[in-house]
Amino acid sequence: MSGNFKLEIANHQKMIDELFAEQAKKQQAEADQARLKAESNHQTMLFLERFMDASIRVGSLNSSQVELYLTQIRKAYGDQATICKYVSVVTRLLTHDFYGVESNTFRPGNGGLIFKGESYKDSKELYEYFVSFMADFDPLDSQVWFDHILTQVFSDPTFLPAEVKREEWRTRFVPKLQELVEEANNSVSLPDLDSLTTEDSFLIQSLMGGF
């Protein structure tokens, strides 16, 4: 084997080694960047949770902060986590020891509701306030879950504050709320209007607000 051929082989091997080394360096840099990003996100989410806890505790939480928080929850964990956190924040506000909801009537649907010193004529008005406060949206798009929370608040004031801290909040309680909303949405199904007389069709559509 000539000296030139051996040199070519050595140079070729060196080039291969350098390529592998460069690739390994690139992969390590990408792994380090991903690890730093993950750690940064982890620390940020921990801070957001602590910030929310503190803001709820002292009553200083505002709509802009809620919107930022829910946006980050959705980006980090997805829609279902957003629903759980949304309901959690509302529940913690409603059950707060110092400024939480109270009622002058036995049943919350009959009015006399007070939250943070402000009066609300019924649960619908209070629900609409919370939708506005919670970044102007409701991920469940229904008052059903809110009324269920209110019922729990007044039937057992100690239940929800404890429940919201447990893992079952995510795996059982909130999914149950979603089931209640789904049942309510499907509880009244319209008949096929084409199979009805004009008079009956008019009656049903009038009842449903069609006219």
Rank of each mutant, 00 (worst) to 15 (best):
S2L: 11
S2N: 13
N4T: 14
F5K: 15
F5G: 09
N11K: 12
H12S: 13
Q13G: 06
K14H: 12
E18K: 14
E22M: 10
E22H: 06
Q23N: 09
Q23D: 07
K25E: 14
K26W: 10
A29R: 13
E30P: 04
E30L: 11
A31D: 08
A34V: 05
A34F: 02
A34I: 04
R35C: 00
R35G: 01
A38M: 02
H42N: 04
T44I: 05
T44K: 07
M45H: 01
L46F: 00
L46T: 00
F47S: 05
L48M: 13
M52Y: 06
D53L: 13
S55H: 12
V58I: 14
V58A: 09
G59H: 04
S60M: 14
L61H: 02
N62W: 10
S63R: 15
S64E: 15
V66G: 05
V66N: 06
Y69R: 03
Y69C: 03
T71W: 02
T71G: 10
T71Y: 08
I73H: 00
R74F: 06
K75C: 00
Y77R: 12
T82G: 06
K85N: 12
S88P: 05
V89I: 15
R92I: 03
T95F: 01
D97R: 15
V101P: 04
V101A: 06
S103K: 10
S103T: 12
T105A: 03
T105S: 08
F106W: 05
R107W: 07
N110G: 01
N110D: 08
G111M: 01
L113R: 02
I114Q: 08
I114A: 04
F115V: 02
F115P: 03
F115A: 04
G117Y: 09
K121W: 02
S123C: 03
L126V: 02
F130D: 03
V131F: 00
V131M: 01
F133I: 03
M134D: 02
M134P: 07
M134F: 01
A135P: 03
F137C: 12
F137V: 06
P139Q: 08
S142H: 03
S142L: 06
I149T: 01
I149H: 03
L150Q: 03
L150A: 06
L150M: 09
P157Q: 09
T158M: 06
E167F: 11
E168C: 15
E168Q: 15
W169L: 00
R170D: 11
R170F: 11
R172S: 15
R172C: 12
F173C: 08
V174P: 01
P175E: 07
E179T: 10
L180H: 07
V181K: 05
V181I: 04
A184G: 13
V188I: 15
S189M: 12
S189G: 07
L190A: 13
L193N: 06
T197G: 10
T198L: 14
E199H: 09
L207E: 09
L207F: 11
F211D: 10
